[in-house]
Amino acid sequence: MPEGEEADLAAVLATQLGRGGRETRLSLSRALIALGEVVMPVLRAAMTGTAPGVRQHAIATERLFRDPEAGFGFAVEEAKRLVALGTADREG
């Protein structure tokens, strides 16, 4: 990818958040994380959206970005809990 186009790619990839099964979501999360810090604004925007699946996937990706050792399964379960409790948009 040409230097400086990471944010544009992150925006395009973010349109796919919440789609597919576990492996597809994990693959997308890894691709977003590989882009680095430029994904954070895109993820934060998706975390405040109205579609629960998108919010959960964005939260899980952000958690995985911050703590890759936690694992995707743990991040997904935490994201589901946050969305169910309605606290995802208050998380920082």
Rank of each mutant, 00 (worst) to 15 (best):
E3V: 14
G4T: 02
G4Q: 04
G4C: 08
E5V: 14
E6S: 12
E6I: 06
L9W: 04
A10D: 00
A11S: 12
V12Y: 08
L13N: 10
L13E: 04
A14L: 01
T15Q: 15
T15W: 00
Q16R: 14
R19P: 01
R19F: 12
G20N: 06
G20V: 00
G20S: 09
R22N: 09
E23F: 05
R25K: 13
L26Q: 11
S27L: 10
S27N: 09
L28D: 03
S29F: 00
I33Q: 01
A34K: 14
E37C: 10
V38L: 02
V38S: 11
V38R: 03
V38T: 07
V39T: 06
V39K: 06
M40V: 10
R44Q: 12
A46H: 01
M47Y: 01
M47C: 11
T48F: 04
A51C: 14
P52S: 10
V54I: 15
V54Q: 09
R55G: 05
R55I: 11
Q56N: 03
H57L: 05
H57E: 05
A58W: 08
A58L: 06
I59V: 15
I59Y: 02
T61V: 08
T61S: 09
E62R: 07
F65E: 00
F65N: 00
R66K: 09
E69D: 15
E69A: 15
A70S: 13
A70W: 02
A70P: 08
G71K: 00
G73E: 11
F74E: 13
A75Q: 02
A75Y: 00
V76R: 13
E77I: 02
E77G: 12
E78A: 14
K80V: 10
K80R: 15
R81W: 00
L82G: 04
L82Q: 01
A84C: 13
L85I: 12
L85R: 15
G86M: 12
G86I: 15
T87F: 11
D89Y: 13
D89T: 15
R90L: 11
R90F: 08
R90I: 07
E91N: 10
G92M: 11
